[in-house]
Design a binder for these strands. Structure first.
Lengths: 220, 220
DNA sequence: CGCACCTTTGAATGAGATCAAAGATGGTGG
DNA sequence: CCACCATCTTTGATCTCATTCAAAGGTGCG
């Protein structure tokens, strides 16, 4: 399905792949590594919207807007496979099923963003941090990147703050609290989930079903 | 394009069209009226995600999930035109262009949600209220429902609070402040934008381009 | 006209921000 | 291999914005 992409491209940790406001050229499939998309506001503060892992699609906003609405930053070293809008258009024309599948994926992304919005808008700091950890943990586990309740979290507390709408100082206190209460364990960038149930409960975490593709039109 | 829908259905102001957690049956096109989609968390608080007006699509999450993730509530009396997933699937199979267009629309919805997330996560109360007013005003104006800088806002301050992550008490104080500073004017559910520039500036409002559909595959 | 709901206002409280500075950590170059 | 420097984490004190609680006006619908 994703032979539509060109050859791989590599970026260093910290690189900016797309900058908000730039004219968009292409979209990407993540081949390896972590990224996040964020918005920087007039007052200089940053809101991280979501994190992307291997297999995720980047820059689909190009489908709707000429100018990139969100900055894409590499959290770790990454490799991406770019593809153009025209190429995607051709594929969609030939394979309607792929269009429908993309539609479902995008919609799932929207729901995930909505869940984060509820977390930030309506829960206290500790729940927001728990929610972020929970979401990342679940996603990594689903793609086999969580071994034994144990994940690699290459984010600074500043990053976590920008994703949860908190200051890094307060993130520190909340994480510390989660450790003290035996919910998680930390050493460096490694995190172990000691009490998944409690973590999910504190986060008001909603575990969404897997994507349901039974309705898709027949493949062409 | 939207002959795929069945006959119109009417709902009273305050009705719940879809309830989170229910098994989804169908999607809708808004024919007339206002709605909003929201999530209620375990602690009883509610986060309103977005508002829908005539022409908007409802319940697309059915494309990805069996269970409805967000509650859909009628803000005013509304009329909707339902359509099924299978019907949409058939249309997509026959007209890839429509799939691509839907993809662009959904992506635009995602970006709009991201803008709200930035507002709630990273701006103070007054900016959040300004941002919500700004967004609603722009959307209504685009669909010709704003006459002379003047809109009908059928929301309680509680609603506005649930959309901005604030309490209704604080929303009241912020709105009052905007009035005192000559940014808006209110009487009942009517709102007049006196200083659009100032409103946008306070809101860190980002006016997105119109949707760009030049790349779509040829119609079938 | 009366009742339900919404808006407005004030005072007290509290969660999270801000400011500042002292430890850790790790990557880099010598 | 070690030392150094930049970056990140941790901690404390103080401040402030927003919440909470409570009660008094408005408004419109039945």
């Amino acid at each position: 399905m994703e032979q539509l992409a060109d050859q791989e491209r590599s970026y260093r940790r910290g690189s900016i792949i797309l900058r908000q406001g730039d004219r968009a050229r292409e979209m990407f499939v993540v081949h390896s590594g972590w990224l996040h998309s964020s918005v920087v506001l007039g007052n200089g503060s940053r809101q991280i919207m979501c994190f992307q892992f291997a297999g995720d699609l980047l820059g689909l906003s190009l489908l709707a807007f000429r100018d990139v609405p969100e900055t894409l930053t590499a959290v770790t070293d990454v490799t991406l496979r770019p593809f153009s809008r025209e190429r995607l258009g051709a594929v969609l024309g030939a394979h309607p099923r792929i269009g429908a599948l993309l539609l479902a994926l995008t919609e799932a992304g929207r729901v995930s963003l909505a869940d984060r919005l509820a977390s930030i808008g309506r829960t206290p700091a500790r729940a927001r941090v728990a929610s972020l950890l929970c979401e990342i943990y679940m996603r990594l586990r689903q793609s086999g990147q969580a071994v034994d309740n144990h994940i690699h979290l290459p984010l600074t507390q500043e990053d976590i703050g920008d994703a949860t709408g908190l200051t890094s100082v307060h993130v520190n206190r909340m994480m510390r609290g989660l450790v003290e209460d035996g919910v998680i364990e930390r050493s460096g960038t490694q995190i172990r989930i000691l009490d998944e149930k409690k973590l999910c409960a504190e986060a008001s975490f909603i575990d969404r079903d897997d994507i349901d593709s039974g309705w898709l039109p027949g493949s062409a």
